[in-house]
């Protein structure tokens, strides 16, 4: 865990936020879950969300510590503060979950998502797409005479904005990874 530069999380000790202010307003939270990379562990996490009726806006997962067999799952979810607290507590009681961090609460987090967008078109639209891609610092990773595949990295909002701009210019297909996130600072 130390290799990941995560502070000891609130959830591994007493301080689940057990005295939350119970507002009815839904909030968006980014939660990082460190799990043992064993078969079915993703199914446990996803099954928890579907079984208890929680939302998943995005979910990314990959092994981050090969020797320790640990994977990091980043989940973006929405819910009232009470629901968010329940999600964290329920995640924490899964036996293969080692640690749960609410990045939205624990500090400012950098959130990044990668997307690939295929834009099909010719003439002015094609030129305009390329110009906007440059403004958004998107890379061209594939090109034909009448199509581009752009690769863009950024906060989800930036990717939303870019996709909105590409739509009238011939956006044919989009693939997004979902959010990966880390706390800022040390």
């Amino acid at each position: 865990m130390s290799a990941l530069h995560l502070k000891k999380g609130s959830t591994s000790h007493s301080a689940y936020n057990l005295r939350p202010t119970f507002s009815d307003v839904a909030e968006r939270h980014t939660i990082a879950v460190l799990v043992e990379n064993e078969p079915g562990v993703l199914a446990r996490v996803i099954g928890l969300f579907s079984g208890r009726g929680y939302n998943i806006e995005s979910l990314t997962v990959a092994e981050v510590d090969h020797t320790g067999h640990l994977s990091r799952i980043t989940i973006v979810t929405t819910g009232t503060p009470q629901v968010i607290e329940q999600i964290k507590a329920q995640l924490g009681r899964i036996v293969s979950v080692r640690d749960v961090h609410d990045l939205t609460v624990e500090g400012r987090a950098v959130e990044r998502e990668l997307a690939m967008l295929k834009v099909v078109g010719a003439g002015d639209k094609r030129v305009e797409a390329l110009r906007l891609a440059d403004i958004f610092r998107a890379n061209v990773v594939d090109s034909t005479l009448n199509s581009f595949v752009f690769e863009i990295t950024g906060a989800p909002e930036k990717i939303d904005a870019f996709a909105d701009l590409m739509r009238p210019l011939g956006l044919a297909e989009i693939a997004r990874t979902g959010v990966a996130a880390l706390l800022r600072g040390d």
Binding site: T11, Y16, L18, Q86, Q90, R93
Partner: peptide
């Protein structure tokens, strides 16, 4: 003993 029971 189960934190998820609290405030559920």
């Amino acid at each position: 003993i189960d934190p998820s029971s609290i405030n559920k």
